[in-house]
Amino acid sequence: MSGHEFHPLVKQLLDGDITLADLPAELRAEGEEALRLLARVARTDVTMPAVTWRVMAALERRRRRFLPWLLAPALAAAAVLVLWLRPGSPPPSAPVVTVRFVLVAPEARQVSLAGTFNQWDSHATPLVRTGPTGVWTATLTLPAGQHQYAFVVDGVRWVPDPGAPAVDDGFGRRNSVLTL
């Protein structure tokens, strides 16, 4: 191995598969060097506030081109949530709603969602970490009605949704409530 290649274990560290503590002592310095490199990348950021109005201005100029399909028969109107019927199944009498669940948990290794819609199965609905800031999300299609749920952090900690109403679960914890 040439001198500028990271040890395979250090690469696993960079991949997030192992931690610094898992490295043998002789590789710690190399591991720390690698993490410093990564930390420098992860902290960098770029923002482009002008893009929004530039895009919308460009669309305004194109508006006429879109008139035909703007006037075409539309999908169901959107409110805060969009109710719509899935084509084919379920039947028209069973409206469903798309719901995006979000939890900010920077320290979590895994987050899932358990509730009345999945028989409280803490393995059934994992959330996906969407960025380096620890935002976990899942988007579900749920039948209209009422659902109770909680997030399960690292498979053991039941956490109510901090932004949703909650009720006593009868076991000394809180369930979040979603009324659709």
């Binding site: 539309a74 109107a77 959107a78 805060v80 719901v99 979000v102």
Partner: peptide, 18 residues
């Protein structure tokens, strides 16, 4: 978070198309 208080991407796309 509710979950519902923030429109999903799908909600917005459908609203734009509508």
């Amino acid at each position: 978070m509710r979950s519902g208080s923030q429109a999903t991407d799908g909600d917005i796309v459908r609203a734009v198309l509508a």
